[in-house]
Design a protein around this nucleic acid. Structure first.
Length: 485
DNA sequence: CCCCCCCC
């Protein structure tokens, strides 16, 4: 850095605006270098004096900016005034639709100096000051952009400002398929950079879990709702919720596995009690949110599983924590029609016996669509001993340990996972010929060789008393079971 | 604003 730019002790960081623009969405506040800018043109939005805009200046370049809401008290009390200096600790730079400039959203900052006597101005060429852009200016090449990041560029900083969202997106995604409209006008934000305090973002995410559209009625009213889990290129996940109009609008649009640009959603702190993904925030999409499918995307974030081996399920019995399971399908029941006690509705159910290399089996009850659709597929192919991966299972205590699908559960048959290969080779080499006990029976007699009885019932799993995988299918009429009490 | 998740 040229020392002649720093003439007074309290001053801006030379090249601060370039630094901000070249790293529009820092992954972590700790990655941000020291950035001090001067606050000029400080003014409230409207007459509320709760939100303030200003122009961030490093003496050479300027950027329109907004201060965090909670900063209004510092301004109203005079701790920060026009021409003051602030150190920017966290921020995002957003593109403004239909304008070439970007805007700086300061999410965390501290006051370095309440006010200076004058605006800092280095003697630079006239056209390099200010944020007014000249459309004629050339785009940066990729190597120039790299140099800029490293702070070794000798080119006028102004060029950074002219880097369009298209170029940024292109640089980020290299040989990506032709960008969708949103990508042409918006910068794609990492999911990890989103927070409740700034709303002008676009994310690019794969829908990694789609919930059912449900109706609810409670003290607060009634409506319908549906949840999705979204995963970005970095593997960051977030749950998004849609209510009512938004739910009916986006339910058909969202398809598992597809990639979307999403903008105009809002974030709030996630309720820890109901968190299904690792994120401090959850997203709400309303009917004005924008969801645009991305065709032909290259990145495939894997579904994140936390598989629990069957012999370790005991620790989860009747707990709130849901488990993921992977194993070999040994047996599939016919579809049963179960009458719900609470309201007499009948719902389809199917019981699946699953084994894994802990040499244990467990029964998994599939409900509703999972029973009729995937359940039927599994029945059709049960003699091939398919591997299934199931996400989000509730662990109950029927017959010691039993598993049950929820509306958010997902089932993948023969998933492309290392575990699939491992289970397959285990099954082919030894599992196939082993008589395996239900995990629940373990709770009664850990040393039992047969292990065929559970603590709550004298029932024996069909898979335990026969090697014939087809035995037990369609042996019990659905209505028989449904009416049996 | 949901967050219920069924049956033996």
């Amino acid at each position: 850095m040229a020392s002649d730019q720093v003439e007074i002790r309290k001053s801006v960081t030379p090249g601060a605006i370039s630094m901000l623009l070249s790293n529009s969405s820092p992954d972590s506040p700790s990655d941000i270098p020291e950035i001090i800018v001067q606050v000029v043109d400080l003014k409230p939005i409207g007459s509320s004096s709760t939100r303030f805009t200003f122009t961030a200046s490093d003496g050479k370049m300027k950027l329109k900016a907004m201060l965090p809401t909670h900063f209004s008290s510092e301004i109203n009390s005079g701790k920060l005034q026009n021409l003051g200096l602030i150190r920017i600790l966290d921020y995002t730079c957003n593109s403004i639709p239909n304008q070439p400039e970007k805007a700086l959203i300061v999410t965390k900052c501290e006051i370095v100096c309440p006010s200076l006597d004058m605006e800092i101005k280095s003697d630079v060429k006239k056209e390099e000051t200010g944020i007014t852009l000249k459309p004629k200016q050339e785009a940066l090449t990729k190597s120039d952009a790299k140099k800029e990041e490293l702070g070794v560029t000798s080119k006028p900083k102004q060029e950074m400002v002219t880097k369009s969202a298209v170029q940024i997106v292109h640089e980020q995604h290299g040989n990506a398929a032709p960008a969708a409209r949103l990508a042409m006008t918006r910068r794609v934000h990492p999911l990890a950079s989103l927070n409740p305090y700034q709303g002008n973002w676009t994310i690019k995410v794969r829908l990694t879990n789609k919930g059912n559209l449900r109706s609810y009625r409670n003290a607060r009213g009634e409506g319908h709702v549906f949840n999705v889990e979204l995963t970005d290129e970095d593997g960051t996940q977030i749950q998004a919720t849609m209510f009512n109009e938004a739910a009916t609008k986006f339910y058909p649009k969202f398809e598992s596995g597809k990639v979307y640009y999403i903008s105009k959603g809002s974030l709030r702190v996630a309720n820890k009690q109901f968190k299904t993904v690792q994120n401090d925030y959850e997203m709400t999409l309303n009917e004005n949110s924008i969801v645009e499918e991305v065709q032909g995307e290259a990145f495939v974030p894997e579904t994140k599983y936390n598989f629990v081996r069957i012999d370790r399920l005991g620790a989860y019995v009747n707990g709130r924590e849901l488990v993921d399971l992977i194993g070999i399908v040994q047996n599939v029941s016919s579809t049963l029609s179960i009458r719900r006690k609470s309201n007499n509705d009948t719902i389809p159910k199917r019981d699946i016996t699953i084994a894994d290399d802990s040499n244990k089996t467990v029964n998994v009850s599939f409900w509703n669509d999972l029973a009729t659709d995937v359940g039927q597929q599994l029945l059709d192919m049960v003699d091939t001993s398919p591997v299934v991966a199931i996400k989000c299972l509730k662990v109950g205590d029927f017959q010691g340990v039993s598993l049950s699908t929820l509306s958010r559960s997902t089932v993948v048959i023969n998933p492309s996972l290392p575990e699939t290969k491992k289970l397959r080779s285990w099954y082919d080499s030894e599992g196939k010929g082993t008589s395996m006990a239900s995990v629940g029976s373990n709770l009664v007699s850990p040393n039992s060789k047969t292990g065929s009885r559970s603590m709550y019932s004298d029932r024996v799993f069909l898979s335990q008393i026969t090697d014939d995988p087809t035995l037990g299918q369609d042996k019990v009429r659905a209505d028989e079971i449904a009416n049996k009490e």
